[in-house]
């Protein structure tokens, strides 16, 4: 059964379906949370919240609006992003980042564990984007910056950032699907 079918069963309170769905999505959910919040304990909290929301809000899933995986990862990503944004607002993340620069071990571990075909493909295709496209996409998606913040950080106009995000995603898709 695929994630879409499982999520439909979960919406009816099927716990066995939830377990099966958990097996499919927990890796991407946790990995994404870890990538964005960059702290294993917080990533676990974010993943837990998102996965419980997946259970409690399953009835809100509408297959017409996208895949179950996309919906699930959106739940997780929004929570992760909310968390880094409020941490950033409180100045915590900068301190944590400063601390981490003395302890590079964590990033190394992540790099090693993350090794995988799909990651390699995405990385290869990200490398094919222009620097501005790539930074616009990754600063937003992996680092949780708003497009306004991305524009500020990259010192480019807002319109440019929006366009680069769009071009970046288009090119990424072309590369991954069309194997350019």
């Amino acid at each position: 059964m695929d994630a879409d079918e499982l999520l439909t069963l979960v919406a009816r309170g099927d716990r066995a379906a939830f377990e099966a769905l958990y097996a499919l999505v927990s890796g991407p959910v946790y990995g994404l949370a870890l990538r964005v919040v960059r702290d294993p304990a917080q990533a676990e909290e974010v993943a837990q919240e998102a996965l419980l929301e997946l259970w409690s809000s399953a009835a809100r899933f509408d297959p017409a609006r996208g895949s179950a995986l996309a919906w699930t990862l959106t739940l997780a990503h929004r929570r992760a992003v909310d968390r880094v944004r409020s941490a950033r607002a409180a100045g915590e993340r900068d301190r944590r980042e400063a601390r981490r620069s003395h302890h590079p071990a964590f990033d190394q571990v992540v790099e090693e564990v993350e090794a995988g075909l799909e990651r390699d493909e995405v990385r290869r295709c990200l490398d094919r984007l222009t620097a501005l496209q790539r930074q616009s996409v990754t600063l937003a998606y992996y680092d949780g910056y708003t497009y306004r913040e991305v524009a500020e950080r990259l010192s480019v106009p807002l319109g440019t950032v929006k366009t680069r995000m769009r071009d970046g995603l288009d090119r990424l898709r072309a590369c991954l699907v069309g194997a350019v």
Binding site: Y30, G116, L169
Partner: peptide
């Protein structure tokens, strides 16, 4: 597209 970005970060939970 963002699902692809997300999946490429997957690690065992």
């Amino acid at each position: 597209d963002t699902v692809r970005l997300a999946r490429s970060t997957a690690v065992p939970a």
